[in-house]
Amino acid sequence: MSGAAGKFRPGDRVRVRTDDRPGHVRTPSYVRGKIGWVERAYGDFLNPESLGHGGDGLPKKTLYLVGFHQGEVWGEYKPWGRDRLFVDIYEHWLDPA
């Protein structure tokens, strides 16, 4: 969890990509297209999309803890108040927002 060399910094607003890519991915569909913020940069990790298909996981991908307001993810139909949802997302799934 050392050096966070990625392109985003805590506080940066990000939008999760809506890519429809085949194979093993670790970005849940409920969060795709949603806007949140980088809460924390966790460092670089082997890429599960490669590991899942027998690859070596390289190059490593920067992993972020990304925060979302519950209302942004699910809509305002519930009184979510300040409730938040945090998801661990790799850099190549994030665009600046």
Partner: peptide
């Protein structure tokens, strides 16, 4: 209601 809930979905190595 006054207490904030923070859900963590552990989707990666953490």
């Amino acid at each position: 209601d006054a207490v904030e809930i923070r859900v963590h979905d552990s989707t990666a190595d953490m």
